[in-house]
Design a protein around this nucleic acid. Structure first.
Length: 461
RNA sequence: GUCCCGUUCGUCUAGAGGCCUAGGACACCGGGUUUUCAUCCCGGCAACAGGGGUUCGACUCCCCUACGGGAUGCCA
């Protein structure tokens, strides 16, 4: 049987990186098995679900390349299916109507808890043969004894005593189906074979297995992933800074780097740290997933991003950085030595937005100089710049070698140390002391612009 | 409370009883290259939660404790 996995988010918030990782593992496993990866929107909670969040989730998954093999489905549009399943359960004697009031349930729970027992429904209505009415819920007849064993790829076999589980509600008193029913029915209807989801669902699993069995559905395979945590070791949530996928994308982290980073959270293959989606698909095994929760570390993402950035071809890099340079109102295609510029600057920051910012001086006039640098390198000897300007002005053959050579000559003539003559020029050209090697930098600016900028700095003093 | 899951350097992880003097990566610290910054290279720091077993031998197996997480909803 061909493998089918699914990512089943509920649209009650933006897609965060923990969700992306769950989707990623679902995707990778399906692809590895030559199966299908599906998306299901679990929007049965009308109160909290919104179309905006749904769109955000779908768009995010699409933008990062985790494309489903079929159009996503919405649970909110499939009630007939759930109702039909509920009806079958009732007719087959696997479910019963219950009219216990909320008050009774609350009392029951608290009194059981006082006795040190597990708070659960006492199955009062189980044999009463109640019929459906306005205030009845439909409950599943959970097996009273025996065990339910969840076979999990990452944790092995997890055993639950059936006596620990009560008769769960599958249809609310307003007639709408609950999560567990929808989940089980859809997994069956969609042909899902393998459930890969967060470990917060482990204790839900035996309940779902009971529904499956009652409905006569085949068994599923499970893999419960450890959770992605914030710095405080707490489960990632809105309280943590920067959890949304879009935030990372808009800061200029490459999709491939984000995916790489997320995949390494809970999974590894030998000493391989830098890899791509294709590698993951090839190497991935559910049994290799780590069992403990993992803290998301941004400095690791920074590193991985640098590596992925370095691996981009010039054309790929151009395409990747363009949205960021556009935002800063610069058009890198206008540069006369674009390839050299990119290769000189691509490692200047960890993110595309950082690199784009560093690129600005190469396209726009300097509107402010680094004051500290000015004080340190220019203020002590302001006349050096004029000397350099005049010397460079005589150079016709404007290339890196000649320029480096000339700077060396100037250094000898003035009997100065390298930083004393190099740094003022850097400041004149880029506004700061940071730039590629000086010959390259002057070459990148060209003869005319280099001279203009040196002059401009002299005049601004 | 009860049930379930988990616990190796600051972080992500390797580790399937002797290969472990516990390996790699990020971060950090130091050095080199770059006549600046970044990159890159080299080196260093740093962990088996605690206690009992089992065993000739335990990071690895068992039990207990502690700590963290989840479930215990007419949320998903």
């Amino acid at each position: 049987m061909s493998t089918v996995t699914r990512f089943a988010p509920s649209p009650t918030g933006e897609l965060h990186i923990g969700g992306v990782r769950t989707a990623l593992f679902n995707y990778a496993y399906a692809k590895k098995k030559n199966g299908k990866f599906l998306i299901r929107i679990e929007d049965t909670d009308l109160e909290r679900s919104t179309k905006e969040y749904e769109n955000n989730i779908l768009q995010s998954l699409n933008s990062i390349g985790l494309i489903p093999d079929q159009d996503p489905i919405n649970q909110s549009k499939r009630s007939e299916l759930y109702l039909a399943a509920a009806k079958k359960l009732y007719e087959d004697g696997h479910a019963y109507y219950c009219n216990c009031s909320k008050e009774r349930l609350d009392e029951l729970r608290s009194s059981l808890q006082e006795q040190g027992k597990k708070p659960q429904y006492d199955s009062k209505c189980r044999e009463l043969n109640l019929s459906k009415s306005n205030d009845t819920v439909l409950r599943l007849k959970t097996p009273l004894e025996g065990q339910t064993i969840v076979k999990d790829y990452v944790r092995g076999e997890i055993v639950f005593e059936n006596s620990e589980l009560d008769d769960l509600i599958i249809l609310r008193s307003d007639g709408t189906p609950t999560y567990h029913l929808c989940n089980v029915v859809d997994d069956f209807e969609q042909g899902v074979t393998t459930v890969i989801r967060g470990e917060d669902h482990i204790s839900n699993t035996p309940r779902q297995i009971h529904i499956q069995k009652a409905l006569g559905y085949p068994e599923l395979e499970y893999a419960h992933l450890p959770l992605v945590l914030g710095n405080d070791k707490k489960r990632l949530s809105k309280r943590h800074a920067a959890t949304g996928l879009e935030e990372y994308q808009s800061k200029g982290y490459l999709n491939s780097a984000i995916l790489n980073c997320l995949a390494r959270l809970g999974w590894s293959k030998g000493d391989k740290e830098v890899f791509y989606l294709d590698d993951l698909i090839k190497d991935f095994e559910l049994t290799e997933i780590q069992r403990a929760g993992a803290i998301f570390d941004q400095s690791k993402l920074d590193y991985l991003n640098s590596q992925h950035l370095a691996n981009l071809s010039i054309d790929e890099f151009k395409i990747a950085i363009t949205p960021f340079t556009k935002k800063l109102d610069i058009d890198i295609d206008t540069h006369q030595h674009l390839e050299l510029l990119i290769n000189s600057m691509r490692s200047s920051a960890h993110t595309l937005s950082g690199i784009a910012t560093n690129l600005v001086p190469y396209f726009k006039d300097i509107d402010s100089y680094d004051q500290k640098a000015l004080e340190k390198f220019v203020a002590p000897a302001p006349t050096i710049l004029s000397y350099i300007h005049d010397a460079l002005n005589k150079i016709e053959n404007w290339n890196e070698e000649v320029l480096d050579n000339e700077m060396n000559i100037i250094k000898e003539e003035l009997n100065l140390k390298v930083p004393q003559i190099n740094q003022p020029v850097r400041i004149a050209l880029t506004g700061s002391t940071n730039s590629p090697s000086l010959g390259t930098t002057m070459y990148l600016f060209g003869r005319e612009e280099t001279l203009i900028r040196i002059k401009a700095l002299i005049e601004s003093l």
